[in-house]
Design a protein around this nucleic acid. Structure first.
Lengths: 227, 227
DNA sequence: TTCCTTATGTCCGCTGTCGCACAAAGTCGT
DNA sequence: ACGACTTTGTGCGACAGCGGACATAAGGAA
């Protein structure tokens, strides 16, 4: 965060410490609680996800424009993406300006919002890893499970075409994958209706990505959350 | 954010509004400034990235556990990933507890940190899209450019093996890609040293992902940032 | 019922990337 | 200068997923 140290100036200076970061040094380990947050000046740090089998993929790269360790704390007005309803239903809605006022007073609500953001970031990272390393069949299982967790019951109302669009693959690939799952007795489907028969079986076929995301959501957003 | 509305209670209630979200509705469009933030109850909303050619990939899925529109505002203590130094050099370091105290007082520093977080999220999203849809050659160009932006000069000190690990691909693939770039006169390299000769040429060969990420970093973190 | 639209099943050749094996060339320590 | 190690080049078979073309089947509307 190149502009940060100089402008914050006097208040931060006594707490800022210059360190060397040699090649291949692990700045923080998966799952570890950070003791420091880093603002690289000339170093570049890669955020990397390492899978169970040792394969890995870079999620992002951080240089002097940024911060390593955002998980230890957590605006523009828009984001370069689109949001599409994937399943019809109800929703609550809050005025953004009001939310902004709330937010400016910080407090417990703020921290909840930020924890959710961290969970969402985990999901995005895992999506990147999954896209790189896992088969269409595995990704289909992951996707079904993630959707199922967000619905009551065991039925999804969505066509294979829609799923293909969400995963960014061909519809035919989803058809073949779904057929295998049906033949294995894990799901049953017909014309836009998918019923999950064997949830545990799906979890076994899915890659680790589903479990990682689920675990992190549970950790960061326990149901008993009280503000 | 299932726990949020009930616990915040009286203060938020007058501002909360229940709406229907029909299938295929666009909740917010790429690049648009949001007027509302959504807390789905029974609906599921997919965050989708649409490429220039119309192909798309889902970045994340949000149900009643979450929020649609985090870009309109923005804590666990760790994250399920590893951070590895990718290029030796110096760095500043700030005590995390001190940062947390600063943070709790909100203010301008907070907003800068959150804007950076949003830029980082863009990079993660784009990585996921890129992994899904673009060739190794394109991704190599993107990666070289992103790294180059974080260094002074035009030379990268890193082996093709390391690059392969970062991209999550085979070393041989990187070798072939690098060879093409050298034969095209865009780069020159030897045993862990890569010199970029034609930056514009690299940008032309890269997929749109590089430009999207760069543009968003520039928008959210302009160099003249003052606190 | 009949027709039309939507959803799913199946086949084929093509291409990019993988996994593996090994050669060639450069660098470093002694 | 020599050997050992690191880095890069190259060839080859295997295979997942793509693109395209069609066939089949299940609602829904008239």
């Amino acid at each position: 965060m190149s502009a940060l140290p100089t402008s914050v100036g006097d208040r931060w200076l006594p707490h800022l410490e210059s360190v060397e970061l040699p090649l291949s040094q692990v700045v923080y380990e998966s799952g570890a609680t950070l003791t420091h947050v880093y603002f690289p000046t000339t170093a570049i740090v890669s955020l990397l996800y390492v899978m169970e089998n040792g394969e890995s993929a870079e999620i992002a790269v951080v240089g002097n424009e940024g911060i390593v360790g955002i998980s230890r704390f957590m605006g523009g007005k828009s984001t370069p993406s689109r949001a599409v309803v994937q399943s019809a239903g109800q929703s609550l809605r809050l005025n953004a300006e009001f939310l902004e006022q709330e937010f400016n007073q910080a407090g417990a609500v703020l921290h909840l919002l930020l924890r959710y953001t961290q969970a969402l970031i985990t999901q995005m990272s895992q999506t990147a890893v999954c896209n790189r390393h896992h088969s269409l069949d595995q990704q289909l299982c992951r996707w079904l499970l993630l959707s199922l967790d967000r619905l009551k019951g065991d039925e999804l109302v969505m066509t294979q075409e829609l799923i293909a669009n969400m995963l960014g693959v061909r519809r035919e690939g989803v058809s073949e994958g779904a057929l295998k799952l049906q033949q294995a007795g894990l799901i049953r489907y017909a014309r836009g209706h998918i019923t999950v028969l064997d949830r545990v079986g799906l979890e076994k076929r899915a890659c680790e990505c589903y479990a990682v995301v689920k675990k992190e959501y549970d950790r960061l957003l326990p149901q008993k959350t009280a503000i």
